[in-house]
Every structure is written in structure tokens, then in C-alpha cells.
């Protein structure tokens, strides 16, 4: 009863589509043949890669190089040729601290405040994001009424621009905003969310979770749906309690997706800037100032634009992100193996 045979073709050999593709591909035949004769079969790979490398170099590698050069030169001039070489001075001043545990004791206290805020934000946000995304995915994976509707609803914020998201929530949370309106209506006292450091950080995390959760929910949902339904039936036949099904079947099988989500959330959290900046402006004081905001302000917003110092800080952040990305690639590769 078993069937054998070759896998189905995308197009039948003589279909109109396949002939059309051949005709179009034929146009490139002759020039490609010339190039191939010139560079050899192996060289062709690089010919195909060249256009992409060119753009990548122009917009990624070149700026990284310039940034590196900026971080090693001083002065306020924008043009490298006008900037004196100062070696690792910027890095040294960034690292100059009485105690690394106390941002106020550092020469660049805002940088370290940013580092400490970003760290706090990252940890809390990772837990909150992965937690809510996981719970949402588990619920949406059940056969509930209106499942498609809810999936769309949770994904919707992902489509909004971060600035729009921040503005919406600012409007809700401001002194005379929607939320305070509701609180006063219920007979409570207005809360100045953007004046109290704890509240500001809370809402920074909350809003970013609200905005991005749908994306991670989608990844986890895809992972959940890849778990064969008969495993759950087997577990049911094996007399497994629901909690044990979750811990012994669902989570282990979801683990690869969960790791991908964890690392993606981590990388994004470290990069956080736009939403929080628009929402709180880094305030009150420096309570929600993130590293990227520090870099931005040092380079472009402060009275004295210190490109070199900002470049040095961004090099350090870039190195961290590079390491995290390598981690993610390593995990993804291990998953594929």
C-alpha cells in the first residue's frame, strides 16, 4: 500500500510557466557565460554575491569603520580629517568610575545610568515579555471561539510604528489622560506616572511588552502548532495531569522556539530607544534613560556635540550586540543540527 515515486514538480516540464521562466532566464545566458569564462565556475559565486556586498559595505561596514575612527579621535569637528587622534581616551573616560555599582560616581554618569537602566529594563522586560507571550500563545493554541480574531488583535500593535505606540500611551498615561480620568471617575487620586521613577519604568516596560508581544506570541504559537496533536492524546491516554503535560511535553518541545524568542527579546531590549524616548523622554530625571538615548544625546542633542564619546559608547554597545547575535546564530544552528 506504500507509494513510491519522485516528488512532485513545481511546474510540469512543458507548462507555459516553465517555458516563460526559461525564456526570461535565457536573456541572461550569454553575458553570464562570458563572465563565467572569465572568472571560472568557482568565481561565479562571488559575482552573484558582489551587488549585495557592495550595498552592505556602503551602509554597514563603512559606517562601522567611520564610527571606529570617530571613537579614536577627539574634537567637535564632524570631518575625520579635521579630528586629532587621541587613542583610547574616550573609552577610558567612559570607564572612569569610583565604583561600577554606582553610576553617580562615574565621570560619564549618564552613560552608566543608561547601562544600569537598560540592564534593569532588559531583565524585567524579558521575563514579562516571554511570560505573557507564552501564556497568550498557550491560550490562543486552544480551540477557543474567535481564535482567529484574538490572534489578529494581539498581533496588531506589532504593525504600529514605535512612535505611534508611544504617543498613544502617552495620551493615555499623561496627567489628564485617559487612565487618570478613569481613576478620578472611580474616586481615586490622580497618579503622575511620568513623575514617579518607579511608575515611569513600569510603563516603559509595559508599553514595550504591549507593542511587541504579538510578534513573539506568533513565533511561540507556530512552535506550539508544530507539536503533533497525537502526542497530547498519548499523554491523555497515559493519564497525565494537565500541569505535567505542560512541563513534560509542551515546554520541552517548545524549548527551541522559546530560546529563539528569549535571545531576540534580549537583543531588542538592549537596543531600546524610540518607544521609551518618546514616552518618557528618559525621565523623570534619568530614571528611564537608556544607553542608546545617551549615545543619541551625546552625539546630536547636547549643547556640545561629542561625536567621539558617542562613537566610543556605541562601539561598546555594538560589541555586546554582536556577541548576543553570535549567541543567537549559534543556538539557531544547533537547533537545525
Amino acid at each position: 500500500m506504500s507509494e513510491t515515486g519522485s516528488p512532485p514538480r513545481a511546474f510540469p516540464r512543458d507548462s507555459l510557466a516553465s517555458r516563460l521562466i526559461q525564456a526570461v532566464a535565457g536573456l541572461a545566458d550569454r553575458p553570464m557565460a562570458w563572465i563565467q569564462r572569465a572568472v571560472g565556475g568557482r568565481g561565479m559565486a562571488y559575482v552573484f554575491l558582489a551587488p549585495n556586498i557592495l550595498f552592505f559595505g556602503l551602509f554597514v561596514f563603512l559606517p562601522i569603520g567611520i564610527n571606529m575612527a570617530m571613537s579614536l579621535t577627539g574634537g567637535t569637528n564632524l570631518f575625520l580629517s579635521e579630528r586629532p587622534f587621541i587613542g583610547g581616551d574616550h573609552y577610558r573616560s567612559l570607564m572612569q568610575c569610583g565604583s561600577y555599582l554606582d553610576p553617580a560616581s562615574c565621570r560619564e554618569d549618564h552613560f552608566w545610568k543608561g547601562v544600569s537602566n537598560t540592564l534593569k529594563f532588559t531583565i524585567v522586560q524579558m521575563v514579562a515579555m516571554v511570560g505573557t507571550a507564552l501564556v497568550t500563545a498557550l491560550v490562543l493554541n486552544r480551540k477557543i471561539r474567535g481564535r482567529g480574531f484574538f490572534r489578529a488583535v494581539y498581533f496588531f500593535p506589532v504593525l504600529l510604528s514605535p512612535v505611534v505606540v508611544a504617543l498613544i500611551w502617552k495620551w493615555i498615561l499623561q496627567r489628564d489622560g485617559l487612565l487618570n480620568g478613569a481613576i478620578t471617575l472611580a474616586g481615586g487620586e490622580k497618579i503622575l506616572f511620568f513623575v514617579e521613577p518607579g511608575w515611569a519604568m513600569f510603563w516603559a516596560v509595559f508599553v514595550s511588552v504591549w507593542a511587541h508581544m504579538g510578534f513573539y506570541t506568533l513565533i511561540l504559537l507556530a512552535g506550539l502548532q508544530a507539536i503533533p496533536a497525537d502526542l497530547y492524546e498519548a499523554a491523555e491516554m497515559d493519564g497525565t495531569k494537565p500541569m505535567r503535560v505542560l512541563t513534560r511535553i509542551t515546554l520541552p518541545l517548545l524549548w527551541p522556539n522559546l530560546v529563539v524568542v528569549l535571545v531576540l527579546v534580549l537583543i531588542k531590549a538592549v537596543q531600546t530607544f524610540d518607544e521609551v524616548f518618546v514616552l518618557t523622554g528618559g525621565g523623570p530625571g534619568t530614571a528611564t534613560l537608556m544607553v542608546v538615548q545617551y549615545i543619541y544625546e551625546t552625539a546630536f542633542a547636547n549643547q556640545v556635540q561629542n561625536f567621539g564619546l558617542a562613537a566610543a559608547a556605541s562601539m561598546m554597545l555594538g560589541t555586546l550586540l554582536f556577541a548576543l547575535t553570535m549567541l543567537q546564530l549559534w543556538i539557531a544552528r544547533r537547533k537545525a543540527a
Binding site: P228, D230, L231, E233, A234, E236, M237, D238, G239, K241
Partner: peptide, 13 residues
């Protein structure tokens, strides 16, 4: 889970 039966699935599961 409460019936105490065992099943062998076509897909083995």
C-alpha cells in the same frame, strides 16, 4: 486519563 486504557496509535505518537 481516568479510564485506565492504553492505546497504540497509528502514528505511534
Amino acid at each position: 486519563a481516568e479510564r485506565g486504557l492504553a492505546m497504540v496509535f497509528q502514528s505511534y505518537a
